[in-house]
Nucleic acid binder design. Structure first.
Lengths: 345, 345
DNA sequence: CTGTTAGCGCGTTCAG
DNA sequence: CTGAACGCGCTAACAG
């Protein structure tokens, strides 16, 4: 278990002072060429690397940013991470990823841990439990402590900070509009419980599209489910009713995939009898039969944007820094679960 | 931009020494009750938290472990992370996740960054490029520097460290055996290029099963592809040949899903005409039509095990520490792309 | 009961 | 050209 080499050890080796070594390694003009040379070759030989902890402590900054995610087994979030990593790389920042597991407690724990000096700023998507509790003191504490925070995707109006969100309303509008234009008039919305903000936003877009095209909004066509296995029973009932839906818009990928499977199993043909659109950046959609038309969220782009805003704030000296909210536009990714002229992929 | 509160500031506030404050906050018996009380309430009021950097520097350990992954947009790796996080939580360790993006350069960069004091140990799955180059000096440097390393999934024999691997040979054997027992005799293997170790291991299992059941191994039934879009042409040719396969074993999920789609598109019924098995821990398999039988890798379990070994080594004082290689057994997860008595899910 | 000192590893004055 | 001293924030051994 050989110990790491330090300035001190090199100094002892050549019987010079620590600061001489430090200067020599930085190629300071204050040090004689010979001394510099021998110290540098020695350092290279023993692969000297300054200790990050010491540097961070001294500089009072770490060039590291923390990312807190509700979960990681989720294609969208991994895309966001990819975007963050990408830009972090370019800007020579490190990234520390933590998971809140959708838990309020763990979110606070992570926040506290990161806030204790080890990161220069934090990017986060709020946990479901926190959304449900509607308790955001820990974030305000953080901000009061002067640690820059950027929220993405699941954001909270009450918190004053930079934000990056997908255009949930617009995306849902686009999807619903597409279904309407394809001739659907009885469009089922499968969404999350009320406390999930993005679910609500997407519902708004759905309603907006229906309104705009003068399609009546019907209560029985709004399905709120917590878990995908709740879909089967309710959807079956609707399909077998006297007035079955002819289109489905689901606020995420799994809901859409499950709904589509249930339709098929119950004798409906997709997209002939019923068209389906999901909302996601995911990978499942490409492999379902038929492949699933979705609203693409561009998670990678969101990640990049979030870090961009964060670095902006970190590097800003401006006392009157103005927080922004960036809207990332979505795209309708046409596949085979909807009727359309072209059906790529 | 209020600055964080430190021992020093509290000391100044009450005009006592820094160490008095430190002791007071640790409820030392050396300090009078009144002083302790007033210092503690003050600290609580201003939400004092010791600076982690300073603590880490002083203790020469960080209670943080680094994880380097080839990529993160990958269900298996996110499962492994979940396992690592889980145990890390229990043991009160932090986890820092980095991505090598399958790049040799970036792997080295990450390694160097983590090695400079900020983590107590590293868990890693090697990048493809490194596998291809067959150059492992950076790992040996790390180990020589006394930083514990655990490799998982994609491991390298030449590196002496703890390892956790899935039973790739066994899993592939199981899968192939299952196909044979279901009556397949012309089983196509879709695998990766030779330098990918896990691909090779799985190929070994495939051959072993064929040998054991005296099914001839045929060269034209071993398809090596780098990317999934190479599958279509080659598979089509085979299907249309005079001697088409009646079973497919693919070394990953995407290959299997793509192969199955191509079979269906070319008029073959799965599993009646041809059976398909994939290798993975993924999420796609559940949503294909038919759902895909796979060899489950238990990524979460692997993650836990990897961290377990790492903590073992970190906390071991033993100079004659013995490295282990843990084999994580796989399970055949039966779904609908293979014939069988029961077809759950 | 409280304070001083030293040290973790580093970089930066400032003196010599 | 080189070194001593200081500070980043914290703890622990030792003095008083």
């Amino acid at each position: 278990m050989k110990q790491k080499i330090t300035l001190k050890k090199i100094a002892k080796e050549f019987d010079v002072s620590i600061s001489t070594v430090s200067k020599a390694l930085k190629d300071s003009h204050e040090i004689s060429v010979e001394v510099k040379e021998k110290i540098k070759t020695f350092a290279r030989r023993y692969n000297y690397k300054p200790n990050s902890l010491a540097l961070n402590l001294r500089n009072q900054k770490t060039k590291t940013i923390g990312v807190i995610l509700p979960e990681i087994v989720h294609h969208f979030f991994t895309k966001v991470i990819t975007g963050i990593e990408e830009l972090a790389n370019e800007k020579r920042y490190n990234v520390m990823i933590c998971m809140s597991n959708e838990s309020y407690e763990k979110e606070i724990l992570n926040l506290e841990m990161l806030a204790n000096g080890i990161v220069d700023g934090i990017i986060l998507s709020i946990s479901k439990e926190t959304e449900e509790r509607d308790d955001y003191r820990h974030f305000n504490d953080l901000i009061r402590n002067g640690i820059p925070l950027v929220m993405f995707d699941r954001v909270v109006d009450k918190i004053e900070c930079n934000k990056v969100i997908a255009d949930d309303v617009g995306g849902a509008f686009q999807a619903t509009e597409h279904l309407i234009q394809n001739g659907c008039s009885k469009i089922l919305l499968i969404t999350t419980p009320d406390y999930v903000v993005v679910g609500n936003e997407r519902k708004l877009g759905y309603i907006k599209a229906l309104d705009e095209y003068r399609v009546p909004v019907r209560k029985e066509f709004v399905l709120k489910v917590e878990h995908e296995f709740e879909i089967e029973g309710k959807l079956k009932d609707l399909i077998c009713s006297s007035n079955p839906p002819d289109g489905i818009f689901a606020v995420n990928e799994v809901y859409a995939a499950v709904a589509m499977r249930i339709c098929t199993e119950n004798g409906l043909k997709v997209p002939e009898d019923i068209e389906v659109i999901g909302f996601t950046d995911g990978v499942i959609s490409q492999f379902t039969t038929p492949s699933l038309t979705t609203v693409a969220q561009h998670g990678r782009h969101m990640g990049r944007k979030a870090l961009e805003l964060l670095l902006d704030e970190i590097e800003s000296q401006d006392l009157e820094y103005k927080y922004k909210t960036e809207l990332i536009t979505t795209d309708l990714k046409l596949r085979c679960s909807t009727k359309s002229v072209e059906k790529p992929n």
